[in-house]
Design a protein around this nucleic acid. Structure first.
Lengths: 233, 233
DNA sequence: CGAATAGGGATTGTCGACAATTCTATGCAC
DNA sequence: GTGCATAGAATTGTCGACAATCCCTATTCG
């Protein structure tokens, strides 16, 4: 399991790379810490503390916070510091709606660009997913699920959309288990994924788009009831 | 005319407001300068110069640049400074594709939430647009066109999607005139907008979505030929 | 004459210090 | 005991200085 989005779109490949060297290493490490949940939502992020923790200067931490704020992972208030941003239930739903729209489009593009090799890889992931469901391993399933979708993003070859959807995902990561853990969901989810692969293999753009829409719309619905149930508790 | 996105989603309402006071005023002014085209694409943005120009410290400028980099308006390379980001033709198309997907979704939501007052306002904008076309005023038309779409974003009441689409728009602003200036485009565009209003007035979600998709798909197509024509020149 | 190299100027990156602001806790009045 | 004012601590915001890096030019050597 571990972090979150390895393949398609690293945190934000826009600029400042070279890892270990430059100053953006603080950004990457802080980001990872937040996404992995090592900081609680709403937890205060004191610059001096972070600087000590990550062995960086306050300047670097500051830049990282500005960046994470713009990215939506952190909330900064003037003179009052930064906290890990808590995304509300309402917002999580909005994010998921956007994801539906974007992945739909990505599926359509993927259908016209997909190669036999890609299809083989997708089927392979699908098999592994089946195994995890049978083994009753929701965590492993969830990880493969991510791989599945990321693979489609890569095939679609649409950098803008992929970056956006990856960013949104890291914002709403806290909600990802609420859907899979619903009863009966894994089986149904599996069938939906199978239909997506089927449509992609046929290079049928319209059907691929529809299948993805169908799949993610159900995820949204599931999330809605999960949240409703979670609230009246 | 002037700036770009007044109503729905100011530059980035996430944090740091209060305008004239805090330090983010440099960010806002620099952003506006870039979006309005007062800096050429690829032009170097030297921190010291900007600090003098905007009467701010280098620290504030630095924070603004980090933010604008994350936002995609500026490109920063380690130790080599920042430049106004040049979005390629390819990327402009990708951005527009994303816009199709998002606005489609926004139209669907707007259809279920729209009020008679909203409909009246949309029809009014539509009338003004007609007047501009008849007057042969593409600039005024373009401005109203923005207002039209922003109004729909507002109605849809989806902050996440609205923010994204607004950001994308400021990135691709350089391309906005390439579509409208194509021959025969204004008339057709007008009819498409009318159909959108019609569908929204009926509160018909599916039809609204389809109308928006139809409209923006044509914009993408138009942009494609405009770019192709522009390249072999 | 061309290529490699060293020097100098310009620019970014980072640190430490201090000012400005917010937060916390204590004391005082009622 | 509750509410308000105030002092002190904690934290952020900003500035100036310096180190690190890059870019350009001129010089030297083959």
């Amino acid at each position: 399991m571990a972090s979150t989005s390895p393949p398609v779109t690293e945190p934000s490949a826009r600029s400042t790379e070279k890892e270990a060297r430059g100053g953006s290493t603080a950004y990457l490490r802080l980001r990872e810490a937040i996404v992995d949940g090592r900081f609680q939502p709403n937890e205060r992020l004191v610059e001096a503390d972070l600087a000590r923790t990550f062995g960086a200067g306050r300047t670097a931490i500051r830049a990282a916070l500005v960046r994470l704020d713009q990215e939506g992972l952190v909330e900064r208030q003037p003179n009052r510091g930064a906290r890990v941003r808590l995304v509300s239930d309402r917002e999580a739903l909005e994010i998921e709606e956007v994801r539906v729209a974007l992945e739909q489009m990505l599926a359509r593009h993927a259908a016209t660009l997909i190669t036999p090799t890609d299809v083989r890889k997708l089927r392979q992931i699908l098999e592994e997913m089946t195994a995890r469901v049978e083994a009753g391993d929701p965590l492993g399933y969830s990880e493969l699920n991510s791989r599945f979708h990321e693979m489609i993003w890569a095939i679609a070859d649409q950098a803008v959309a992929s970056t956006l959807v990856a960013n949104l995902k890291s914002q709403s990561i806290r909600f990802q288990y609420r859907t899979i853990l619903q009863p009966g969901r894994p089986d149904r989810s599996l069938r939906e994924h199978a239909e997506i692969v089927e449509a992609l293999a046929l290079r049928d753009a319209a059907r691929s788009e529809a299948a993805m829409r169908e799949h993610l719309s159900r995820v949204v619905e599931t999330l809605k009831v999960a949240i409703a149930r979670h609230q009246k508790r």
